[in-house]
């Protein structure tokens, strides 16, 4: 089978703060419907790399191609225009607004008089949220009163509603209980079915093995290895995360098994 063309290609990305290399010469690509795990210690540069892709931070070196075209990604709005949406760890939601207001924050639907079209926003939000979670009730409650899982659904719905092609998820399950974690896993599966590519930053190796197709491990700002998930074991990944390399006698797991 011919692999589909990548949606995102990041080539030789670098980010320097003065003399310090936060990210150095990192290349990675993402295909439609693919989930790529981004692993590494705190400070390994994974969040920095993802901020570069989401437009929240500017790179000092390298090129980024989206659908084969080179893009600057100077700010989050430009990244969005390229179909790149980010779901932040802190779940960038405004607590005192309700679900529709949060979903459309910064991109409000307006009537022809230029006023807010709350009716349509509520209707659209209801539809988008029900698609992800049929049990979603009280969408006009302030987000403050919602559970971590419901907040996650709003954040993901926001990405899907605006036709994201690429979703960056930063620790989406870190603050959730087991049942809500399972729900997020289901959501990721739905995104994948729609052909959306996902970068998943995670510290939880179980999540990574459950959800990802490929993993990329970063250490000291560098990419120390990109592997298909079925060719590595947990120990291999821990080796990469901690030591930055695989054992000398390493061979892909799937080859060993067969």
């Amino acid at each position: 089978m011919v692999a589909p063309a990548p949606i995102v290609e990041m080539k030789n990305i670098g980010k320097r703060f003065g003399g310090i290399h936060a990210v150095e010469n990192v290349s990675v690509e993402l295909r439609p419907g693919e989930v790529v795990g981004v692993l590494g210690h705190n400070g390994a540069g994974k969040s920095c790399l993802m901020k570069i892709l989401s437009g929240a931070m500017n790179r000092t070196d390298g090129t980024i191609m989206v659908n084969g075209e080179e893009v600057a990604l100077a700010n989050p709005i430009e990244a969005r225009h390229c179909g790149i949406e980010t779901i932040y760890q802190s779940l960038a939601l405004a607590d005192h607004l309700d679900a529709p207001a949060n979903l459309f924050l910064g991109r409000e639907l307006k009537t022809r008089f230029g006023t807010l079209d709350d009716k349509r926003m509520e209707m659209e939000a209801r539809q988008a949220l029900r698609q992800l979670n049929p049990n979603f009730k009280n969408i006009t409650d302030t987000v403050l009163n919602m559970s971590g899982g419901q907040r996650q659904v709003i954040a993901i719905a926001r990405a899907i509603y605006f036709n994201a092609r690429v979703v960056i998820m930063d620790e989406p399950t870190a603050a959730l209980g087991p049942s809500e974690t399972a729900m997020v896993a289901e959501l990721i599966e739905k995104l994948r079915e729609q052909g959306i590519g996902i970068f998943l930053i995670s510290h939880d190796l179980n999540d990574v093995f459950d959800l990802c197709d490929r993993v990329m491990v970063m250490k000291n700002g560098q990419n120390v290895g990109t592997h298909a998930i079925d060719e590595v074991t947990k120990d291999d990944l821990l080796n990469l995360i901690i030591l930055g390399k695989l054992p000398d006698n390493w061979s892909p797991r799937n080859l060993v098994a067969s």
Partner: peptide
């Protein structure tokens, strides 16, 4: 922070 990230 959330507002800034949402493009406000």
């Amino acid at each position: 922070q959330a507002s800034r990230l949402a493009g406000v």
